[in-house]
Design a protein around this nucleic acid. Structure first.
Length: 484
RNA sequence: GGGCCCUUGGGUUAGUUUGGUAUACUUGUGCCUUCGGGAGGCAUAGACUCCGGUUCAAAUCCGGGGGGGCCCA
């Protein structure tokens, strides 16, 4: 199964073979988190918690259900979500007077409470987050971790006295994104979404996107500035120093299990997953190389190495199953353990352990007396190399174009026989000049069945030329791609 | 919203046209021999999505439901 030649199949194969989730649960888009996948997700969650706690956010947990009456208060928001929410209309045998929405996201659950919690400027800023499941009724094809109906979701919500303070929060969120993505070794774009694609109800949205092996992009999360768009309908005000009651300015930041989908897709290869050391359930796996005469001695040596590593804080697994070494190698390669140690008679004689790196296959030895620093060094090198390789791929996926003709046309569009591989089209992430008007944007998107992801949020990625659609001079660059 | 396709042990599948003992690989379990890159032998376990119909007889034909997937708007 080849990652680049047949990405879709490869991905499903990885999820199954590495035992990340069980998709046989009989509801579309609702899969079972199995232990190995859940362990990885928990590391991601742990790092998010560390970051949020470290920036003075408080963790909360809101109810799953939202009364229809609250849900419908912000007009754009309801328009954006109306067709994809689950409803609870019945309890026992009674029809409910007020139907309940199963949260697709928690703005409308939290904000009525925020309006009770916030009374004075001393209550601001209010910064909370939660890690919960949200539900969206996907009708399109679902895919584990990427498009699901029950989403493992992180969301932070903040309220501020001024728009400027809210803007600072956006910057803080993006710093968190940077640190988190560093740990996950994932590259990303920060793109300000188009007006017609921003979060329903938002003033503006910054999308966090990464590129998949098939050059489609996957949105990993987003940061929104709401201004007072929600605080007005939900009446979230505070009393300022002058005794006035202005509306608060709000932001949100959300990410999901798509991070795991990206880790699988970005780092994996044809032999299986390759996990960044920070999220690997096991960072080192020790395989004993036994023979009849030295079994006891080798086992003892393996246990000693394991204990030494564990007490130094490494997550280490000693695979003492009664199986052949080769079979174990394959097993842990599929599961993406970044570093493998082999310990046999030869190694004991020489006072070393033999190591093999998962990311590039490189083998070597580490002397037992430098076991701890040696292990740390190699794990760091693996992370650095995963990160560098991933950023390089993302960079290579972008193609700057001057004319819409440079985007290959999908001749199979609308045909019932879809055997022609999309890969053969060589679709890319495109960057180009855009005047910024909605008309040109729609024209561009419709012509190629491609989505404008937005314009660079951070400075330093400008353009100097003409709008690719209407030819007007522009300094704005836009990015477009097909999305997962 | 409209249309199409699929459903056989845990996984992958043969068999369905032409109704009659359900195939193979893999996985699981047990024992033995092995063990520096997917070991081998023997034994053992495990399935026709459900409900109804036709029939002496249904995985197979017919009707309906569940579940899964795709395409079009």
């Amino acid at each position: 199964m080849s990652k680049f030649e047949n990405y879709n199949e490869w991905y499903l194969d990885m999820v199954e073979k590495a035992k990340l989730s069980d998709k046989r649960y009989p509801i579309k888009g609702m899969n079972v988190w199995t232990p190995y996948g859940w362990k990885i997700m928990r590391f991601v969650d742990t790092y998010l918690r560390e970051e949020l706690d470290g920036t003075d956010h408080d963790e909360v947990c809101f109810p799953l259900f939202i009364p229809e009456t609250e849900f419908k208060k912000e007009k754009d928001h309801i328009k954006g979500f109306d067709s994809e929410v689950f409803w609870v209309t019945k309890a026992g045998n009674n029809e409910l007077d007020v139907p309940l929405v199963v949260r697709p996201t928690s703005e409308t659950a939290m904000y009525p409470m925020f309006s009770l919690w916030i009374r004075s400027h001393q209550d601001l800023p209010l910064k909370v987050y939660q890690i919960v499941n949200t539900f969206r009724y996907e009708t399109k094809q679902t895919r584990p971790f990427m498009r699901v109906r029950e989403i493992h979701f992180f969301e932070s919500h903040t309220c501020h006295d001024t728009e400027e303070d809210a803007q600072c929060q956006v910057e803080e969120d993006l710093e968190i994104v940077k640190r988190l993505m560093h740990r996950l070794c994932l590259p990303y774009f920060l793109l300000k979404r188009t007006d017609w694609d921003k979060f329903p109800g938002a003033h503006y949205t910054v999308g966090i996107d990464t590129v998949m092996p098939n050059h489609r992009t996957l949105q990993l999360g987003s940061v929104h500035h709401y201004r007072t768009n929600f605080s007005k309908p939900y009446n979230i005000t505070y009393e300022d120093e002058n005794g006035d009651h202005p509306y608060v300015h709000q932001t949100t930041y959300g990410m999901s299990e798509r991070l795991l989908g990206a880790i699988i897709s970005v780092h994996g290869d044809d032999s299986g997953l390759i996990l960044p050391p920070d999220v690997a359930p096991f960072q080192v796996v020790i395989i004993p190389i036994l023979s009849k005469k030295n079994a006891d001695e080798v086992t003892k040596a393996c246990v000693a190495v394991k204990e030494k590593l564990a007490s130094a804080g490494f997550r280490v697994k000693l695979d003492d199953r009664d199986d052949r070494p080769g079979s174990k190698f394959f097993d842990w390669e599929i599961k993406g353990v970044p570093l493998r140690f082999e310990i046999g008679g030869r190694d004991i004689e020489n006072g070393v352990v033999t190591f093999a790196r998962r990311d590039n296959g490189e083998k070597g030895t580490i002397a037992l007396d430098s076991l701890i620093p040696g292990t740390k060094l190699i794990l760091d090198q693996i992370a650095d190399s995963l990160r560098a390789k991933a950023w390089e791929f993302q960079k290579g996926a972008v193609k700057a174009i001057e004319s819409m003709d440079e985007i290959p046309k999908d001749e199979t569009k609308g045909a019932s026989e879809t055997n022609i591989k999309e890969d053969s089209l060589d679709l890319r992430v495109y960057s180009f000049g855009w005047c910024g008007c909605e008309e040109c944007g729609h024209k561009f998107e419709d012509e190629h069945d491609i989505k404008i992801l937005g314009t660079p949020y951070l400075p330093g990625d400008e353009y100097d030329g003409k709008c690719i659609v209407c030819g007007k001079p522009t300094k704005t660059k836009a990015y477009a791609a097909r999305t997962m």
